[in-house]
Nucleic acid binder design. Structure first.
Lengths: 190, 190, 190, 190
DNA sequence: CATGAATGAGCGTTCATTCAT
DNA sequence: TATGAATGAACGCTCATTCAT
């Protein structure tokens, strides 16, 4: 009896991310995906019941991974300013290293595959609570903005920074990163 | 002999924007679009050669409109701070009033319809030059960032603000707008 | 503008009946049907929304035709016996001439295409009321059986007779028809 | 080495009958059948070479069982009338108790699985010879009809009676059975 | 013998586009 | 110009069957 190959599922997800990155979520064709993975189209259905199921599963998986990462506390820093900058850097690096995942989520959210269930889970995950932000407000260092707004500003700016890096308007050296951070810090500090 | 009906072309564009807004760019079906406009599918082809041509034409048209609007100078303001805030407010209102167009552009950029030609024109339009930003730098008020970066920060933050408004995290009253602006100003001022 | 060809719809129905007659209702494949009609598979969908819709439409149409025919009164006969025999002959000839339609109905009733709606309509049509049968009972000529039972016996026997004719066990000459009728008459007369 | 499990084969046949009864012969899917039996799809192929082989085997097996039963003589009765009625009752009970088998045969006969070989065997079995019918003709009690016709009338009427019982138009009590029999007897007696 | 993964062939259906008027 | 019918190319998916263990 043939055993289910775990690598195959991973490969399917990886190639789906690639296709979405290159041709948009509408460019995901089951036959094309199968060819890219190196399997038969029907084999896809051994791992995912339908195309929608495939897309939604990947979306929810990424959502889970991101949430876990973004909520994870960073240890070892002393001052609030140090911790805040570390968090920013952490987010920036994560999003730089997971460009395709971020792109997938962005496209998924606007697609017909983002169904009722997905929206519900999305809202749940979105109720971000951050002790760090609270600390910043309590210390009178951060503006009096709720967590959602702070998070939106941070991630919005990080996305733009990544775009600027990719377009060559910004380097990844220390001075450029200092500039980038000064924008974020200026936006959120009191 | 009847000439091409200009109103019909406008209606086609309008309905395309609606469909993209509601069901994503992949939801644009020529027959559905025709029905929504109130014409026959084949009549669409009198106005646009192909579906790609339709999407690209709309994308470029919006791009042109936006660029013109964003580059237009605002008159009557005195101080730099006043002019800068006016520009921000102008952008915010424009983007709020043209949600569907902005959404179309966002989706188009990541779709297979964003072809070589589109990308070239996009890059051209992107080379933004702003006298206002220059003035701010010269006066030592704005951070020493080039126009592209400033523009990216402004539009990135505006998009997030619009998202927060739509999600109910932000109101459109004066205090909220003051807070929103303070974020942008903090991000870009020296 | 091309006009819808009414003959095409008739041809589709005819070929569907042929296929069901030859290979069973499970043998109906849209592509095969299209080829047999001489059109493209997609053209089928101009005339019928789905395969189920095609099958159900045909089923209901036949049901309607049959009901109308079987309920139609026969004029010009004098005695009850004459009228009853005429009705039997009428049914026999109709079913002989509409073998494919009868066969379609029989198969449809046992297929997954016989849905809730079909079943409801079927039951409605089934509530047969016959003045002739009533007359026979009133005259004390027919057995005291309700219309449904009489109808079941008549149509059941006619189906068997048709089967016997097709298998060569029965001819269509006068003596054979007399024998066949004597069976029916014996079954139902008091 | 384990031998083929006879119980498993019986279970496969039983579940096939169930599926055909519930969803028609087109509803037989090898994987669904396997799940219903509680085995793997591939195990089905240990017992039956192909799906066609499965269906045909079951059809022929039922055909054999039915023929044996219907040809079996009944002992212990005295008069012809008694024997004839006993035979009728025997057939009625058998068909009532083997509804699923009868249904399978009916559907099989009209399906693509009823192949050349099946048709040949069918014809062989159909050449019914009955001593009872002969006796009835010799005694001048039954109409002068050949065995095939008598058998067709009997089984045709029994099927209709079963249908009437299932639809609630006929009960299974003594008076109803008397009525049912009087129909058959009237149809066939001289 | 028994199995679950794997697959090729084919199915019903959609849709951008063309045809014919 | 305007139209609805017609279509070929593809799509998502199913399923009988085989593979590999």
């Amino acid at each position: 009896m043939k055993l289910k190959d775990n690598n195959k599922e991973i490969a399917i997800i990886e190639q789906t991310l690639n296709i979405v990155y290159e041709t948009g979520i509408a460019g995901v064709k089951m036959s094309k995906l199968a060819k890219q993975v190196g399997i038969s189209p029907s084999t896809l259905y051994v791992y995912f019941e339908t195309k929608e199921n495939l897309i939604v599963s990947i979306g929810l998986k990424i959502l889970k991974d991101i949430t876990e990462r973004l909520e994870s506390a960073l240890s070892g820093e002393s001052s609030f300013e140090q911790k805040f900058r570390a968090k920013w850097l952490n987010m920036l690096q994560f999003m730089l290293n997971h460009e395709k995942e971020i792109n997938f989520i962005d496209q998924w959210k606007q697609s017909p595959y983002f169904n009722q269930e997905s929206a519900t889970i999305w809202k749940d995950k979105g109720r971000l609570k951050s002790e760090l932000y609270q600390e910043g407000r309590d210390l009178g260092i951060l503006k009096d903005l709720n967590d959602n707004i702070i998070h939106a500003v941070m991630s919005g700016l990080i996305k733009q920074i990544i775009g600027l890096i990719k377009d060559g308007h910004l380097q990844m050296d220390q001075p450029s990163m200092d500039i980038a951070y000064s924008i974020v810090w200026g936006a959120l500090k009191k």
